[in-house]
């Protein structure tokens, strides 16, 4: 019994409630999903073991391939546009003494809104009748006459834009926090040496905030895998699968086609993909990267 009153064991008491809930909400369903991917279960009734049939079907599924490519495009888009804008804005904000809080709040505000609200705002803005397109059309311009969400060529980027718009303020805040940790003496020394603003950013700010920056890259890569809500609300993955992503496709298989076994197989793929990313970051850390 002594072990339970051991000082080292106390931490487990605090972890236990969360671990217990996680076991039921995440652990058991995840294990069940791993088991279901080898079955033909349709969400009701009999569960039949079918071996690796679902995985064989996966590799032949042209829409899943499309969804994977879209996820990759999505990841690249998020690793470049919001990161670039957030880094620039955070750096510029560090130079603002008055009214900085206003900008921080303004940039962060979309992140505080529910995804449904963000989506509705942009859906209405791009609506061909009620939105900007309708407004411009009434004054004789064809600009935005067609919603970018409903065009095959633009739907994925339009959804990524809305999600990025909501997300980049979060990046600004974490970058800004990192930038405030940088020793001011470094900038003063650089000023004495006559460094430009860009040189200070390139040679002082960026290297000094590397742990925060790499962390943001890691979460972007991981969060890009299960991206779902913005796609589901704005386009449902359409038109013609042009904005389809893996998580939305998995949802569609489970709740539209009732192919729970197949859907679980997609989930299993996602799980392994995320595990590989996490393992890679772990290896980098072991190799001495300051992450």
């Amino acid at each position: 019994m002594k072990i339970f009153s051991n000082k080292n064991f106390v931490a487990w008491y605090f972890v236990f409630p969360v671990a217990f809930i996680h076991l039921f909400v995440i652990g058991i369903p995840s294990l069940a999903s791993l088991a279901l991917c080898l079955t033909d279960w349709r969400g009701l009734g009999e569960i039949n073991y079918i071996g690796f049939e679902n995985f064989i079907e996966l590799f032949d599924d042209r829409y899943l391939k499309k969804a994977i490519i879209n996820n990759v495009i999505w990841t690249i888009a998020f690793l470049t546009v919001p990161v670039g804008i957030a880094l620039t804005c955070a750096y510029l904000l560090t130079g603002i003494k008055r009214g900085q809080m206003f900008f921080r709040l303004a940039f962060f505000f979309p992140y505080m809104l529910a995804s449904v609200i963000n989506c509705q705002i942009w859906k209405y803005l791009f609506h061909p009748i009620h939105g900007l397109g309708g407004f411009f059309e009434r004054i004789g311009w064809d600009f935005l006459a067609v919603s970018p969400f409903t065009m095959k060529s633009t739907s994925l980027f339009a959804v990524a834009f809305v999600d990025g718009w909501h997300f980049w303020g979060f990046l600004v805040v974490i970058y800004l926090t990192g930038m405030y940790q940088v020793d001011n003496h470094l900038y003063e020394a650089a000023d004495i040496e006559g460094a430009t603003k860009f040189q200070k950013f390139r040679y002082i700010t960026l290297p000094m905030i590397r742990p925060v920056f790499v962390f943001s890259i890691m979460i972007i890569i991981i969060w890009s895998v299960p991206v779902f809500d913005y796609v589901y609300i704005l386009t449902g993955g359409g038109p013609a699968y042009s904005s389809e992503v893996i998580a939305n496709y998995m949802y569609s298989q489970a709740f539209e086609r009732f192919d729970v076994g197949y859907s679980s197989a997609i989930g299993t793929l996602m799980f392994f993909y995320v595990m590989i990313i996490v393992a890679l970051f772990g290896l980098f850390r072991k190799a001495g990267w300051d992450i």
Partner: peptide, 9 residues
């Protein structure tokens, strides 16, 4: 009026 508007309405 168009496929795109049909999707948007």
């Amino acid at each position: 009026g168009s496929l795109e508007n049909y999707y948007a309405i």
